[in-house]
Structure formats: C-alpha cells, structure tokens
Design a protein around this nucleic acid. Structure first.
Lengths: 334, 334
DNA sequence: ACGTAAAATACAACCGATTGCACAGTAATG
DNA sequence: CATTACTGTGCAATCGGTTGTATTTTACGT
C-alpha cells in the first residue's frame, strides 16, 4: 500500500494525498479529513525510508563500541554497557533519531575509519577511546560530527567527554592517604589514555604526600580477568607488605579483592582498595567498593548533547563530567 | 559527488558507471577499470541509502530493550547488556545487517507495537520478555520475523530463545539440598514469566525432597536494588532460621548477600546462596557466587540464527539454551 | 565497400515519497 | 457579462541509484 494507491482510492493525485497527510493548508479541510480518514481505514503507513531519502535526512546516530584492545572480544565491561544504555536514553529523550550500534570483534582499528566513511549517519558517538587515538584523529578528518568518551589528549582533533581522570584518581588516592595508608600499588593498563591519566593522578597524590609508588601492576585489560587476579597474587608473594591498592576500574578492583582474599588477607583490614567507575554492583558487592563515580546518566546526556551541538554547527568543546568519591567499606579503617 | 558526476567525468552514462562499479561483464574490462580507477581517485562513495532504496532492501535488524517494568529506567542489568553485546557480535559475524537499538524509558508497552509497525527493519530481536507478553503477541500478528529472549509460554505467538528456567532453578535448588540445607527462601518477582518458571522449579525440587517453601520474597525488580536488600533484611528479622536462599538473578543474590552480612550472618556459613545468570562478576565477587549459567554467547547467536531462519522463511521453533550449574563459594559447606 | 551479427553503451523507467509550478474552477470586481 | 484574483488540485521533476530495452559502435564475412 503506497501513497499512489491511496490516491487512487481517494480519487485524487498523490500530491494531494501527500499534502493532506502533512496537514497542509493548501488542500481543503474536507479533502484533508477525508484522506486522513481513508488512510486510517486502510491502515496506510508511509514508507519513511522513501520519505527520508527524498528529504535527504538521515536521522540516525552511529554508536561505536571499540574493542578493549582484545582480539575477539565480547562486550562485558559493565561501565561501557551502562554508558551505552544511558546514551540510548538520552537519544530517545532528544527524539527523532535512531541509534545504529556497531562493534567489531577483531582488533583492527580501521573499521572506525571505514564506518565513518561508508555509513550514512548524522553523527558518531564512540564509547571508549581505547587505544585508537590515531584512528580517531583520522576519522575526525572525515567527519566533524563525532564525540568520543575518553581522556583529553594534547593533539586530539576530536571532541571528548569524560571524567577528569587525573583529578579523580588523585582524589581516590588522597582518600587512602587520609586513612593512613603508606605502601601503594596501582593496578591498570597504562597504555590506555584514561588509565595513564589516572596513574599520573595517583603518582601526584603520592608525591604530594612525600611517598613513592610501592609497586605497579599492569593487567592487559581494563576489565575483570584471571590475568588481573594473577598479577595481584604475584605481587602479594613477591613484594608483600603493601596496604593500599588503587585500581583503574571497579572490575579490576574486584579481581584484586579476590586475589587478596585468596592470599589470606582482608580488605580493608590488610589492604584498602579503591576502584574507578562506580558501577552499579559496587554498591552491592562484598565488601562494598569505594570508587570514583563516573555518572553514566550525565555522561550519556553530555555525549548526546555535545554531538547535537556539533550537528547544529555550534562550537563544542571537550568537557569533563563531574566526579565524586563514594566511600564504602573497602577503604574504611583497619 | 554522485554517480552522474562520475559519469560526466568518465564521459559515459551513469548506467555504464553503475555496471562498471558492480563489475558487470556487460561493460568492457578497459572501461570498467578506467571507471573504477576514476572512482578511487575522486574518492567516490556510493550513496548506499539510495541504492538500498532502489533495491528495496533494508538490511537492518531492530533490537529492543524493554524496560524491566520500571518507570524511567536506566539499562543497568548486566545480563541484559551482555546479551545485547553478544547479539551485536553474532549479527556482525553474520554480516550485512546493521543493528538498530531501541529502548524506551517509560513503562508504556505499546512502543513495542509501534516499533513493529513503523520502523523499517527486516526483523526484531527483543531482549527480555519482561511483562509484555500481551504486547508481544500483538506484535507477532504484525510481523512474523521477531525473536524474543525469555520464557516459553503456553499461548505465545512469537518465537522465544532462553534457558530452561524451570529445570535450571530446580538444578540450583537441588544443589543446595545436596549440601544438606533445609529451610529455603526464594527471592524474585514472580510476575515475570521467567521468574515464575524458576519459582516453579524451585518448588518442584523442594517437593521432591519432601520440603516446603520456608518463605518467599518478592523484590519488584530483577536487578540489584535497595528494595531487594530491605526485603531480605526484613525476612531475617521476622522469620529467622533459614539456611538457603535461591535468587532469581545474580544481582538479587548480591543484594541478598549484602543484607545477610548486614544482619551479622555469613555466606555460606549461615545461609547458602545461589543466583541465576552467571554474570561475569559472579566469578570475581566475594564470595564468588554459585549460579546457573545462561551462556550469553550461545544466547546471542541463537537469537540471531533463529531470526535469520525466520527471514529465510524457514520454520523456526522456540528453543532452550543449555544451562549449567557453576559451583562457587557461596554454596560450599558450612 | 557493404550488410549484418555481436558487443558496448545510452536511454528511460522505476523505487515512494515531496514540492515548484501550471492549470482549472470559482468568486469578486468593474 | 467579461476580466481579474484567488483557491484548490494535478503534473512532472527530483532525491541517487539499478536495470530492461533501444541504440550505436565494432568486427567480420563476402
């Protein structure tokens, strides 16, 4: 059932039908009502793809989920997924745009460029800068309507939204210092820009307090994994005596806590732990996890708002989402 | 830069360009190569929307994330989100189709119908049956290319993929029985079809053992929440003495464990706990959580495979993804 | 050199809507 | 009653591709 069929039924031309359905004043109220009525009766639904094609509007936002530097990944990072949910919410609230979700399971970053080149979307939101700074810069040359969740880097050509990783982790570390902790370990993969900044904030807090890094661990992933668990177990054996662990994500923090328990130590009795992200579960885990909140609702909204500014040709700058330290059991007194 | 521009540049008609780019034999190899070369030089990218419009192909799958019966929800259920990631993976592996993600923050189920009516997608995957059985049946009248993750219901007109909730929860309960537990509590909202079946499996296992339900708790949500926590605290006060808790999801199980700890009891010493879903975190939480695996990778693949069967007009039946009991600390001996 | 078959390319309709402009019908005006 | 102004519809072009058919070009045999 297309517009011309409806026109035949109504005994008018399809231009009249088009105008009638659009509620144009150029067609008599009677004809208009009659046609609208007829459309309802025959359950006519306009072909929106034809309409959008004619009107040259896309009305679609591409959301990209880069892999976390892992080959053949399955999206499991709760923070990323919750942020995705929040972006979907914000987009829905904005209205009128659909969300095209794209992810890639292999580790070849060129798909970001390819996506930017070949897909017809009004704009792109990349959830997670990951290791793809270079590719993102190239993509920014092709499209200027792209917003990335991640860290602000000196030479970036794209717009980012994210928390102030440096200050956030500094805050988390200072919280542990205020508890009287002295021997610090950092857990995270500093190849990731966000983690790199968190590490710097960690170092800065220690430097301010006249302390140095006791040890650092690199888990080649930012999510929970046996690798992370093993790293922590190893450092417990090799270099015991640390009393504070700063993890670059909650999932890593959970892995660390498990390793610590496996080693027969307690959290926070022997070792206090802070995470980053404040995923939903951190409030319900045991021990509950002190963490730096990355407000997902605000984050999703900011990503979408910033993208829409770009779509409207308004100037848009990279920005920080406010962070907050949420204190829970894992860092309370011994 | 459109095809007719390229045709002008090449000094041929656009039909020739079209055929040349498609690699048709009807155009000389020389002309073909020349045009392809020219296209590359001028960085010509075909307008895929125009092409797909002409060819009448959609190449898009709609993925719906219904709210969990909660008003103004933010997608935070790790299992749902991980399943979404897995669907995205499976769809990408299949190739050729894009993923249109839709969710709705208010609790009005009619958007499912509206989506089915107005969006041009080849097929629909609904992640989570939730309370929308009626709406889904109506949607199934409109489109027969729809697959839903959830429970199999007697009068359903749509195809489902999911675990055998009855058997799964029966298995979990039997595991606790084998540990010698006697006084059982079930935690979950039995209005949800999946939870209802899990509850029945729970009851059946107890009946087989000659026991009855000690108490049941309804948290009006299937994810972690203060409500769930309070329910468990309440039952600990009002009706102490139970030694086993079966939760209809891992997130509820985590809430329960927190409440139990708050009440000064231990898991599994005083109360053993099993969950359902086996989300990633269950392996890294403390205590690690015994759970029924709902294999997300298999689930996403089955959803996509089943949908593609429907798209190919092959018969497709509702099916079960195999479950497995993963035993961890939370149910080991006292 | 010419006719003809085969090969290469061009023309034009089409997908399903929108919209500028032409045209017909009616009412108002002189 | 004829002319003008205005109102309501219809025609046809358009968005950017694809493809059946017509047309031109080439190659070849006589």
């Amino acid at each position: 059932m297309k517009m011309s069929d409806l026109a035949k039924l109504a005994g008018v031309s399809k231009s009249t039908v088009s105008r009638a359905l659009a509620g144009s004043e150029r067609v008599t109220k009677e004809t208009r009502d009659r046609i609208q009525q007829l459309a309802k009766e025959h359950n006519y639904r306009m072909n929106m793809r034809a309409r959008n094609f004619r009107l040259q509007n896309i009305l679609t936002i591409g959301v990209l989920l880069p892999s976390n530097g892992q080959a053949e990944w399955l999206a499991t990072d709760p923070f990323v997924l919750e942020l995705l949910g929040s972006v979907a919410d914000a987009l829905e609230a904005k209205g009128g745009h659909e969300l095209l979700l794209a992810k890639h399971s292999n580790n070849d970053p060129s798909w970001i460029l390819e996506f930017a080149e070949t897909r017809s979307v009004d704009g792109i939101i990349v959830i997670g800068q990951s290791l793809y700074h270079e590719e993102l810069n190239k993509a920014a040359d092709i499209t200027n309507t792209m917003v990335v969740w991640g860290a602000q880097l000196p030479d970036q050509k794209y717009v980012t939204v994210g928390t102030d990783n440096y200050q956030g982790c500094k805050l988390a570390t200072e919280h542990l210092l205020a508890q009287g902790r002295k021997r610090f370990v950092f857990l995270g993969d500093t190849r990731f820009p966000e983690t790199q900044l968190r590490y710097r904030g960690f170092q800065a807090a220690l430097a301010d307090a006249g302390l140095t890094v006791h040890s650092e661990l690199t888990a080649y992933s930012e999510t929970a994994s046996d690798a992370a668990l093993n790293y922590v177990s190893e450092i417990l054996d090799r270099q015991p005596g640390f009393d504070a662990l700063v993890a670059s994500s909650d999932m890593l923090a959970f892995s660390a806590i498990k390793a610590i328990h496996n080693g027969g130590l307690t959290v926070p009795g022997d070792i206090a732990v802070v995470g980053y992200d404040d995923i939903t579960l951190s409030e319900y885990s045991n021990p509950t996890l002190t963490s730096i909140t990355q407000n997902r609702r605000a984050g999703g909204k900011a990503l979408v708002d910033t993208l829409f500014d770009l779509l409207d040709n308004k100037p848009a700058q990279s920005l920080f989402i406010p962070t907050e330290l949420v204190t829970r059991e894992s860092t309370l007194g011994r």
